[in-house]
């Protein structure tokens, strides 16, 4: 098992390297001269040329890429053009907020989604099932940012129960987390239901019933654990979606997270910050995927025996 985890971590290296290539290339071809952006309007052409020279912007692509990667390995993600702060420090400030939000959103969506999915499957074609699945279908189709605005309108502007923006207390996290969690909850609910329905038809469920087992134990002990594998995959994917969705949700609720930082940075052509943000999110996503794969082993002994 440990060997497997180590191998997986080793396999993350080329993927992350690939991400650096993509991110670097994207920023490389993005129009706009960083030197001009840093010096702002009214700088003399000489000053711009001098700064270009200093930053090595005139070097060829490969030289610049290798400089980028070697800086990265030394923990240097570059310097923010706007406030001259190292990007690393900015990530340290913003990333925990995004993580907190994403974790809360995953918690909300997993709890809600699993509950809805299990009950819907156990009571297939009941009123609950129909209503829950209709809601899930809607929740899945609802644009996050629109839903965020509607929630804000209702709970902050009209009812005044929850703050509309900022990130200073737990109260501030409720609306954004619900916004981010809704569509994931919908997807998890649908997945749980169909996975459970497939498992419920299996012979070992009939066997458990034939032993005289109580129905809720049949569902929870025998069916759920088997149905969980595709659901865990989906939950992992949802975590990635949350990190991506943070870009929108954080902008709406003015949350000082990686997402808002990146959107602002793109508009200001603040490339190092964008690069740092994308790398950070890609790295967290890879780690989440690894955790999901490890989780499989604890759910399914057949998978555990393959991890050698």
């Amino acid at each position: 098992m440990i060997k497997y985890i180590l191998r997986r971590i080793l396999m993350m290296i080329p993927v992350m390297l690939g991400v650096t290539i993509i991110v670097f290339t994207m920023m490389y071809i993005t129009p706009g001269d960083p030197a001009e952006i840093i010096l702002e309007d009214g700088a003399t052409p000489e000053a711009v040329a001098e700064l270009r020279e200093e930053m090595g912007l005139d070097d060829p692509y490969l030289v610049r890429y290798f400089r980028f990667v070697s800086d990265l390995l030394h923990g240097d993600l570059g310097t923010c053009y706007a406030i001259g702060q190292p990007v690393f420090d900015r990530l340290v400030q913003t990333f925990p907020n995004t993580m907190k939000l994403a974790a809360l959103a995953v918690l909300v969506s997993t709890t809600l989604g699993l509950l809805m999915g299990i009950i819907s499957a156990a009571k297939q074609y009941s009123v609950f099932d129909n209503v829950a699945m209709a809601l899930a279908m809607m929740g899945n189709a609802m644009p996050n940012f629109w839903q965020g605005l509607l929630l804000m309108l209702l709970f902050s502007l009209w009812l005044g129960w929850l703050p509309a923006s900022g990130f200073s207390s737990f109260k501030h996290m409720i609306l954004p987390a619900v916004t981010m969690g809704t569509s994931s909850a919908a997807i998890i609910a649908r997945m749980t239901r169909s996975s459970m329905l497939e498992v419920i038809r299996a012979d070992y469920i009939s066997t458990a019933r034939a032993k005289g087992q109580v129905e809720y134990r049949v569902i929870l002990r025998h069916a759920l654990k088997n149905a969980l594998i595709p659901v865990v995959t989906i939950i992992g994917i949802q975590f990635g979606r949350q990190l991506g969705g943070a870009v929108l949700t954080e902008s709406i609720f003015a949350i000082p997270g990686v997402g808002k930082m990146m959107v602002d940075a793109i508009k200001a052509r603040n490339f190092p910050v964008v690069q740092g943000g994308v790398l950070m999110i890609a790295l967290s996503l890879s780690i989440v995927n690894l955790l999901v794969d490890i989780l499989y082993a604890y759910i399914d002994p057949r998978i555990k025996s393959q991890y050698k």
Binding site: D203, Y204, T207, A210, K211, G212, V214, K225, P301
Partner: peptide
């Protein structure tokens, strides 16, 4: 019925591959 199933009457299903729960 639950006190009859498994105690008084029990059942063996067709396919042993699928009638055992793989995760227990």
């Amino acid at each position: 019925m639950r006190s009859i199933r498994g105690e008084k009457i029990s059942m063996i299903f067709q396919d042993p591959m699928t009638s055992l729960n793989p995760v227990l």
